[in-house]
Every structure is written in C-alpha cells, then in structure tokens.
C-alpha cells in the first residue's frame, strides 16, 4: 500500500474553560488513502467537528492542538505556519459545511465567489477562473451554469446552494475534502443526490474525503472506512462492512440498536436505548469514557483500555470481544 495522503497520530485538542481544561479530543489516530472516504460518526459533543477543524488549522487561538504526527502528503501540519496553512486551505484541502447559506457570502454573486477561490491560489486570468466555474457548476449537476454565475446565493434553493458549495470546494482540484454534515439540512431526496455526487467526484478525481456525520444511514452507504467517536475518543474504527455487520464496541452496538432498521426492527417495537449522558470532559479523564453508560462495565474499565482487533477493524474495550464473557454473544 502506498504512503497515505493523510496520517494522524495521537491528536489531542484541549479547550481552556472556566475552572479547568476541556479535553475535547484525545488520542485520535487515523489515516486516509487517495480515493477513499472516511466517515467520522458520533453524536453531538463527540469532538468530530473539532477534529476536522484541527486538520484545516481552523481552531481558535485559545484551543490547544497537539499531535505526534499529522502529515498531509508529506507536509507536517503540526509545524505548518499560518501562511502555509492558508496556502493549503481551499487549494489542496477544502471543506464543505452543513449550512450553505451561512458559508456563502450573500453580498457577492456565485460567479465571483467561485472565481475568488481559484484567483487566490492560482495565477490565472478572470476569464480562466470563470470558465473553470462554469465547468464545475456543470459537473455538480447545475443546469444553465453560465447564467447562474450572476446570481446571488439567496436566489438558489438549499440543494442548489449545497451544489455551489461543492463546486467552490473543487475549484482548485483539492486532494482532500472535509465535508461536515453536508446534507443534514437537506431533504432526503436532495441528500441522496448530493451524496451520490460527492462519492462520484471522489472516485473520478481520485480525492480523499472525510465525511463527518451523525447519520448512520449516510455512513453505511458512503464510507469506505468508519471511525466511531464518543466523548472525544475513537472507540471503534474499521471498514464500513465490519462496523455495520460486526459492531464490537458496546457504544457502536448501542447506536445501531437505537435506529429502526427496516426489515430487522419490528414495527412499533421498542427501540434500543443508551441510558445516561456523555460525562464531563473537564479535568482528568481515566479509563473507558463509555463505562458510565455501558451495560458491560466492570471494575477494570477504570484502568487502561487496550486496543483490540486488527488494523482493518479495531476497537477499545477491556473485554476481548466487546462484551462481558459471562453473557451470551449479542445478536
């Protein structure tokens, strides 16, 4: 296997808060090849969005980011200065946000905003930038692309705006795209279209994509690799098939039991639940973070938690198979 495009080792993010330090992200490891889609899935407060902002160098000044390694195509992002990060952002790595209306500037036309992305990073003429904008708008499935250039964001529907956002992210031909809940604000029909488009583009242009979402359906259909985050830690990583067909961490299993699965969950039957709430991440955190909500918690959960499994499917749990041995294997 070739050198990965992105390699992150032991990423930690600390946020100073009144009365201590919030350890928002702890010891995250992952890597990503070109042409691959990695999905980081987790609930609110799991640190998934912070992780993506850390990669882009977009964390606030007060937030402390540490990593043993954070390499993007041989560039050490932990040492990259502001200027270098600015040159990378929007050029070789770009980001798509959840709410296109707030990410697009309402005062400028779509054509101007698309061209801007290219003019910032490339030595091209306005006309060349314009041509590229038309080309990409067509690529993301916008009809009459040339006539759209003069339109303002508020003149477009939500689905179209998200397509424009994607076109803008692609202007410089990035190698890495980070999409943070790109379809959460959209209707299911539009969601399917946008996700299809993203996946096709990743394959066609040999990019890598990090898809951040809470929607397990989106993850299953789009991701090659899945990283499940809980309270700032990766509790389970693996191929989409492994995660959905053989979930091993109690949290992953719990999450999958919480959603109705057509054909598998009886209609109207009670769904699974995960009792309790995410613990406070301020101050010292030891042992397994999920133990307060876990059916399988034992005394050893307060200690060091080993990594189980192999590189293509790993989880962190004191139990070798992710559940107490005295119980029957969960269905």
């Amino acid at each position: 296997m070739s050198e990965p495009l992105l390699c992150v080792r032991n990423l930690n993010i600390d946020i100073p808060v009144g009365g201590g330090t919030l350890h928002a992200v702890r010891g995250i490891d992952f890597e990503l090849q070109r042409g691959e889609v990695l999905s980081i899935v987790g609930e609110s407060g799991s640190g998934k969005s912070l992780t993506s902002l850390a990669l882009m160098g977009l964390l606030g000044k007060r937030i402390d980011r540490r990593a043993d390694r954070m390499d993007f195509d041989g560039i050490d992002l932990t040492r990259a200065g502001k200027r270098q990060m600015r040159a990378l952002r929007g050029d070789r790595m770009s980001m798509i946000f959840q709410e296109p209306m707030t990410s697009l500037n309402p005062a400028y036309t779509i054509g101007d905003q698309l061209a801007e992305a290219l003019l910032l990073h490339r030595n091209v003429s306005r006309q060349q930038a314009r041509d590229r904008a038309v080309e990409l708008l067509e690529k993301v499935g916008i009809t009459a692309a040339a006539s759209r250039l003069g339109q303002y964001p508020h003149q477009l529907s939500g689905g179209l705006r998200q397509r424009v956002m994607i076109a803008m992210a692609l202007m410089c031909g990035p190698e890495l795209i980070i999409a943070d809940e790109p379809t959460t604000a959209l209707d299911v029909t539009i969601q399917a279209q946008i996700l299809r488009l993203l996946v096709d583009l990743v394959r066609e242009m040999d990019m890598a994509m990090i898809l951040i979402t809470h929607d397990l359906g989106v993850v299953a259909r789009v991701a090659d690799k899945v990283a499940v985050m809980y309270a700032g830690e990766l509790v389970e990583t693996g191929s989409a098939g492994a995660i959905f067909n053989a979930p091993s961490h109690p949290y992953t299993r719990g999450l999958l039991r919480c959603i109705p699965l057509p054909g598998r969950t009886a209609r109207g039957a009670p769904l699974g639940t995960i009792p309790g709430i995410v613990p406070s991440l301020v101050g010292e955190i030891g042992g397994c973070v999920f133990r307060t909500r876990c059916d399988h918690a034992v005394a050893a959960c307060h200690g060091a938690i080993p990594h189980r499994g192999e590189a293509d499917h790993m989880f962190r749990c004191v139990h070798p198979h992710g559940h107490r041995e005295d119980e029957e294997t969960p269905a």
């Binding site: 009792p275 309790g276 709430i277 613990p279 307060t292 909500r293």
Partner: peptide, 10 residues
C-alpha cells in the same frame, strides 16, 4: 453518583 443518570444531568 453515576447510578442515577438524572443526578448528573441536572
């Protein structure tokens, strides 16, 4: 204190 999830929530 962890036995009652509500206690930690409120």
């Amino acid at each position: 204190d962890l036995s009652d999830p509500l206690l930690q929530e409120i």
